[in-house]
């Protein structure tokens, strides 16, 4: 979805494709919060591009501050598979004991994508994390996703995570956003 998307191009709430996209996001949130990472991997497209650019605090004339060329995450399906496999070892200390997360997804907007069967989906997210007796960490931002149809199901083909913080106020990012 781009700045030029008009309201008329947005799929109506409750339309078939809107509901499928929203359902995808809600189910994904549940898989992540339940630490069902193996099932989550099944929702990722083979050609997935998954990025979370670093952001800086800049004047409005310089735009939103997302840095060209540096990210907190620059992932493919295989690198996310690596992260999941890491969590499945018995020495992934940052997640052993594990984080307890809550992925809240809202403000879902859907339009038809560039290719047949693809949907461009933007949404706002708020992810809370607590772990052991530590206070909550909050991760908030916007996701810009491309969902691709694969038979009867949708797969995540592209995700851009537009994070709200410039200095990450969390000691690590050992969870998925």
């Amino acid at each position: 979805m781009s700045e030029t998307t008009t309201a008329a191009e947005l799929l109506p709430v409750g339309s078939d494709d809107y509901s499928r996209a929203a359902l995808f996001l809600y189910r994904e949130a549940q898989l992540l919060d339940d630490a069902r990472f193996e099932d989550w991997l099944e929702t990722l497209h083979d050609e997935l591009v998954y990025e979370m650019p670093v952001r800086q605090s800049v004047m409005p004339k310089d735009g939103t501050g997302f840095v060209d060329g540096m990210t907190f995450l620059t992932e493919t399906r295989n690198s996310l598979l690596t992260r999941v496999r890491r969590l499945q070892t018995e020495q992934a200390w940052a997640e052993q004991p594990g984080s307890r997360t809550r992925h809240l997804v809202a403000n879902v907007l859907v339009e038809r994508g560039a290719a047949e069967g693809e949907l461009n989906v933007t949404s706002a997210f708020l992810v809370t994390r607590t772990r052991a007796d530590l206070p909550y960490d909050f991760f908030s931002g916007e996701r810009r996703d491309v969902l691709a149809r694969d038979g009867e199901r949708l797969l995540l083909k592209r995700r851009q995570i537009l994070f709200d913080q410039t200095v990450m106020k969390s000691y690590n990012l050992s969870i998925f956003l």
Partner: peptide
Amino acid sequence: SYEAYVRTFGPSGIFEQDDMENWE
């Protein structure tokens, strides 16, 4: 080099996320 760095170090790095666990 960029991909190797971001995936292994920094707050999300598969190495470094465990370092903060120890330092904190």
